[in-house]
Design a protein around this nucleic acid. Structure first.
Lengths: 229, 229
DNA sequence: GCTAAAATGTGATTTTAGTCACATTAATTA
DNA sequence: TAATTAATGTGACTAAAATCACATTTTAGC
């Protein structure tokens, strides 16, 4: 983790919708209570069970939110910039309830929790944006949970590939940011099962794998597999 | 569904933490934009895919939030009064994203979405309470999701029994509000598997089943089973 | 560039829970 | 109260993915 030169929040190119609605007084409060950090690939942003260091705003990069379960680690969501992570720490809880790890080089700002809360109390529009955010999260988590629970592994892996392609990288070809174990943690499966599924897809010419580069060759078939489970 | 006599929001005995912080002007706005309804056991409060009729506040009763998946229905959460349901409809979306069904006789108030949003914009404290609510939901859903995904069926059913006993009914003996299929929808299993697990627990004297009445006879062992998966 | 460690691939086997088919019991309602 | 429907229980069988064991490849550190 490195600390870059601090730039002004007001002139920040990566402002969130929520920060966009703040007036200059509020931006000033934010400015003086906000610190920046850069994380390398696989660096920990914060860890479950440790005291939290405020709300993190991911300005650029990609983060996995994960948590240890009774049997294995589970990736709860992938968060692409720009987005807040760790908002649930605005609750009384002083300890992180999950872990956040950078998957690619990631630039973040940390906003002190009490300042974040102050902005909610001061500015209804800010609060409204945060609520929109949380609501959207809830709905997508519901959807993901249902699909990950009810589909079998081919459908789940297809889902993950389509998520990476459509939502994260917006390209049919991308550098896979997760290893096979991680991918298993995302789709509720074991490393070996993920490998077997990917091999299967490769043999059927649905995807090509060259080192870390994955290309989706037949998206409509992957979508069919995703739908049929 | 029946429409009872309308009582004043201000004097309501079941006020939420959020409504508690409203001033009398705001309570008045709420009062004039809020309607009451009573639902019988198994009555639909709102259904996925239909236009939503505002945020519902559950004054008394018990509700299941569920959604059809690719294979079967899934219960996303059980909501005990007093609590809001359907807050994610404050998002632009005009259509319910999941279904809410009363499990026991349930008293609700419907608050028009735009009024709910107005209160968020007007009163930071109200927004703050709603945010606390959403954050708490997110964290508990994460936890439930991890446990339901990683444990095997004995652990999952034990979890459900402990949830009903500890969180919903606060008693070791209760009237089971869910049938075997519903219980399966809650713990990601089939009716037959739930039956087999309950029979197993009964034979081990962990629970007793007399009609719809379930009594937890050996909670510490159920907790052990919940932990060991 | 060499070596150790980490990540990935693959076959054989086992485990878990789902599926199917049907019996039994409970709850509605005509 | 009989008749019908819905809910529950149970055994036999099947399918899916986990587990285990080990080979191979890739990556990172010296």
């Amino acid at each position: 983790m490195t600390k870059p030169e601090k730039e002004s929040c007001e002139s920040c190119r990566f402002k969130s919708c929520a920060v966009e609605v703040l007036d200059s007084d509020e931006l000033n409060i934010l400015q003086t209570n906000c610190s920046e950090a850069v994380f390398k690939r696989n660096e920990l942003i914060f860890r479950e069970g440790t005291p939290h260091s405020g709300i993190a705003y991911v300005k650029s990069g990609l983060v996995k939110i994960h948590k240890m379960g009774p049997v294995k680690d589970q990736i709860l969501k992938l968060v692409k910039a720009p987005q807040f992570i760790g908002i649930p720490t605005v609750l009384g809880n002083k300890v992180n309830q999950y872990t956040a790890t950078a998957l690619i080089p990631t630039h973040t700002c940390f906003i002190a929790t009490d300042v974040f809360r102050k902005l909610i109390l001061l500015n209804g529009k800010f609060a409204n944006e945060i609520i929109n955010n949380l609501c959207f999260d809830e709905l997508s988590f519901f959807d993901r949970s249902i699909h990950q629970t009810q589909k079998q592994i081919h459908g789940r892996v297809a889902d993950a590939l389509l998520l990476l392609s459509n939502d994260i990288f917006q390209s049919d070809s991308f550098q896979m940011p997760l290893n096979r174990t991680d991918l298993g943690d995302l789709v509720h499966a074991r490393r070996e099962s993920v490998t077997r599924t990917l091999t299967h897809f490769r043999k059927d010419n649905l995807i090509s794998i060259k080192g870390k580069t994955i290309e989706l060759l037949n998206k409509s078939m992957l979508e069919r597999i995703s739908k049929s489970g």
